[in-house]
Design a protein around this nucleic acid. Structure first.
Length: 591
DNA sequence: ATAGGGTTAG
């Protein structure tokens, strides 16, 4: 009989390095205690990495390991990303063993390991083993780990298929499915595409389904729900979820707290995000990253920097993501020297090796500030191969500062790397259009045709009285379409009185001057703003979420509308937020 | 007697 209170076992659990571990183990053997190495391995399971490595070594000397022992050790090894290969090698031992077969305890931790790079490819064959070795009805743990794996493997429909076959999903299974939708939507950085919106909406629907079941949501559930709201920019639903946490006495832990800070920030309510952040009791680097990121995308460079410096006071160390968001803040706030200093401090102060994304921030920082030559040099001297994001950054900077030559060169690289991304062509085309080189604009259009690329349709979401309304460029599908277009007419007349002259240079193609104006009038955010002016209370700011970046003309017009109609307008575009108020924008026209 | 699944930031 194993006595878990035995002094040696207690010592064993307190080992914090390999040497003390070896000593205690030796003690175990010499005292002649009847411990089996089995017990040692078991106790090592929850310990740190050196312990599982040690257990693995001991394991090799055990003559006839049981399946139980295999399972224990496999699970222990999968907790450390650099030991996953050992877990798989043990699994293979089981397969080649004469009398052993994997059971339902063997699979969950292996699927968990498969849910991350670079082990994704090992998932499907493992699924085949489940079918071979296990009999239905399948164990909920196995089902859930499979579900989670397929979501991470990018086969969300398989996850959903498996989910729908489960008659009574338990809490973790609901959470897995919800998180799968919420996460697959937020995959592409800050943009909201049609698909992302659909995924997030599906998460909201699924949450409703869950409430009809017998299972009560917990903190993990709410984290998924809240991040779906962040993706959608759905403030009402997000605030409702916040209320749900409070009403149901769920813990406002770091996960929930960070998700809420991110949600309020992505819904345009930076002040609410700040308030929440200040109230969080146990903040970690994740919380800080969310808050700094919030300041960054709302254009509050100095506050982002202040927070970055304050982290140290809480003994928190910046990680790679902290650097990304803080440099983004510097880049958009024109804080070039500060940004450069942070980049240099990565290696010198924090011992971090800058990765591709950090070079991306650096190029953006320099390029945006007009230091194009330096940006280009840093890009050429990078220790790794620049990706499309970096070239796009340089192209954007070249456009901003009117350096055609550099823009053309960057685009060449871009089209090589991403021949099917329409935004690249649009950037270059707009650059030509801005200086009236219509032949080149046409040439780019032909190039797009050759590559079979269509311009990505623009769309905007706006929330009116808790309901999300969606508008496409030139959309006529809204039930109040007629009223919206006549409102746009009114807006245009009113803005003319304000002395507005439409800038037509941002139109993609060479069309007649009058058509250009029309074209611009119907960009999706114009429709959304017009509708919001008709349908929402005049004391509330108008909040818009766009899938593309704001064009120069819409930006100029929205500034005027904010003054002419005395309405605050908050637009989240692909990259950041614009707060329009009294005729100016928080981005200071620097976006 | 001892083994397994779901959560946050860019």
């Amino acid at each position: 009989m194993l006595n878990l209170n035995h002094p040696i076992l207690q010592k064993l659990q307190k080992c914090h390095n390999l040497n003390t571990l070896k000593q205690v183990h030796a003690q175990m053997l010499t005292t002649g205690l009847s411990f089996q190495t089995y017990y040692l391995s078991h106790l090592l399971n929850t310990s740190s990495k050196f312990a599982s490595t040690y257990a693995f070594t001991i394991f090799n000397h055990i003559p006839n390991p049981t399946l139980f022992l295999y399972n224990t050790l496999i699970s222990s090894l999968t907790h450390h990303s650099d030991q996953i290969h050992l877990a798989f090698s043990l699994y293979n031992h089981i397969l080649t063993h004469k009398t052993l077969q994997p059971n339902s305890f063997t699979f969950p931790s292996l699927f968990k390991a498969c849910a991350s790079h670079p082990w994704l490819q090992h998932g499907p064959p493992l699924h085949a083993h489940v079918l071979k070795f296990l009999q239905p009805p399948y164990d909920p743990f196995v089902q859930n780990s499979l579900l989670n794996f397929y979501a991470k493997y990018g086969k969300l429909c398989v996850s959903r298929y498996l989910f729908d076959q489960i008659s009574e999903p338990d809490l973790a299974t609901w959470n897995t499915m919800l998180a799968a939708y919420a996460q697959s939507a937020s995959h592409v950085s800050y943009s909201t595409s049609f698909e992302d919106a659909d995924m997030s909406l599906e998460a909201l629907h699924l949450f409703c389904d869950m409430q009809l079941s017998q299972i009560k949501p917990n903190e993990v559930t709410l984290v998924a729900l809240i991040s779906a709201c962040s993706n959608l920019g759905a403030l009402s639903q997000g605030a409702w979820a916040h209320g749900y946490v409070l009403r149901n006495n769920l813990k406002l832990n770091r996960f929930v707290g960070t998700a809420l800070v991110d949600m309020y920030s992505k819904c345009g309510c930076l002040n609410l995000a700040c308030q929440l952040f200040d109230e969080l009791s146990d903040r970690d680097t994740f919380c800080y990253n969310a808050m700094i990121g919030g300041f960054a995308v709302h254009g509050h460079g100095n506050q982002a920097l202040e927070l970055y410096r304050n982290m140290k006071l809480e003994d928190l160390v910046p990680d790679g993501a902290t650097i990304v968001v803080t440099m983004f803040a510097c880049s958009h706030g024109g804080l070039v020297e500060e940004g450069l200093e942070i980049f240099e401090s990565m290696k010198g102060v924090h011992g971090m090796e800058p990765k591709l994304e950090h070079y991306g921030c650096l190029i953006d920082l320099l390029g945006r500030a007009g230091r194009l030559k330096e940006a280009e040099e840093r890009l050429q001297d990078m220790p790794m191969k620049p990706n499309a994001i970096l070239w796009r950054s340089l192209l954007g900077a070249a456009k901003l500062h009117g350096n055609l030559e550099m823009g053309e060169a960057a685009l060449k690289h871009l089209i090589e790397l991403e021949p099917e991304t329409s935004g690249n062509y649009v950037l270059l085309s707009n650059m030509y259009a801005s200086i009236g080189r219509w032949n080149d604009v046409k040439r780019v259009r032909m190039l797009m045709k050759d590559h079979g690329v269509d311009k990505l349709p623009g769309f905007s979401l706006v929330e009116i009285n808790g309901a999300m309304h969606e508008f496409l460029t030139g959309d006529k599908a809204h039930p109040f379409s007629k009223e919206i277009y006549s409102k746009i007419g009114e807006i245009n007349r009113r803005l003319l009185e304000y002395g507005h002259k439409p800038r037509t240079s941002e139109v993609l193609f060479d069309v007649e001057e009058e058509d250009k104006e029309d074209f611009l009038s119907y960009h999706s955010e114009r429709l959304a703003i017009a509708f919001a002016l008709i349908a929402s209370s005049s004391s509330m700011p108008i909040r818009i979420i766009k899938n593309l970046r704001v064009c120069g003309d819409c930006h100029a017009i929205t500034k005027l509308i904010s003054a002419a109609y005395q309405r605050d307008i908050i637009v989240r575009d692909r990259n950041r937020f614009h707060h329009f108020k009294d005729g100016s924008c928080s981005c200071l026209d620097y976006w």
